[in-house]
Amino acid sequence: MDLAFILIQLLNGLQYGLLLFLVSSGLTLVFGIMGIINLAHGSFYMVGAYLAWSLASMTGNLATAIAIAIPLTVVLGMALEKLLFRQLYTRDHLYQVLLTYGLILVFEELRSIIWGDDVHGVAVPALLNASIPLTENLSYPVYRLAISGVCLLLALALYLLIQKTRLGMMIRAGASNRDMVQSLGIDIKLIYTLVFAMGVALAAFAGMINAPLSSVTPNMGSHVLIICFVVVVIGGIGSVKGAMAASLMIGLAETFGQVLVPDFAGMIVYVLMAVVLVWRPEGLFGRK
């Protein structure tokens, strides 16, 4: 194994990890702030990918497709929060699990009715369809680098939003003390709607930009959901920092696992989770 090969795997692992972060950051925020376990979060990723595919085949351009799809997913997120998830805040986790499980079935069947059960591919945008040569026969696709860059920018924006803005301050306060926030006259309902919609949009956006890299398949939602659960468990519920650390860890572990021990690659993330559970049951950045 030479250096260029390792470099490629490293970049792939980071890129996969950053993508996982986009999906899991929304999941962990919704867990941490609203106390909701949302099994249907993976469906948003799937919806994003299918939207990108169908809009890209209509407009002939992925960038346009994404520009149209993002507002749609924000609206979807706001509608779901107002109509459905709002009823769950005071309910036992058991019912949250059941309702969001039902929601997955609904999403899967709607997907089957609207888009069918076939596997689709999305073309890499022409502008980014190039490779950077590393050695004579190894090169790295520009599109992957571009995705990583976009993910990093979004992560930075998320960090600034939560740490530096008034909205972020309310989000953090809402996580620790709901009554206090409400008594300050802050509209907690609005914050919840915004946070939820942001989570939906981030997951869907991850599905959109990843569509050219991996094919658009019916089961993509559930696979990503479970990996994101592992991310949240390892990182600690509600911790965006933890989600970032755990996403990168898992991205690298899975990528290198597939190269080094292909038969057991699927298991590595769960072994990692088991180790963290023994060592720190509340997660790397979780509060006790």
Binding site: I37, V230, V233, I237, D263, A265, G266, L277
Partner: peptide
């Protein structure tokens, strides 16, 4: 059983999924 609540739900799911992958991938 070291975990509670939401964690417990996710972790039981993840371990079941680990078995799924053992039988699915190998």
């Amino acid at each position: 059983l070291r975990t509670r609540g939401i964690y417990f739900i996710m972790v039981t799911l993840a371990f079941a999924q680990m078995l799924f992958f053992i039988f699915h991938d190998t």
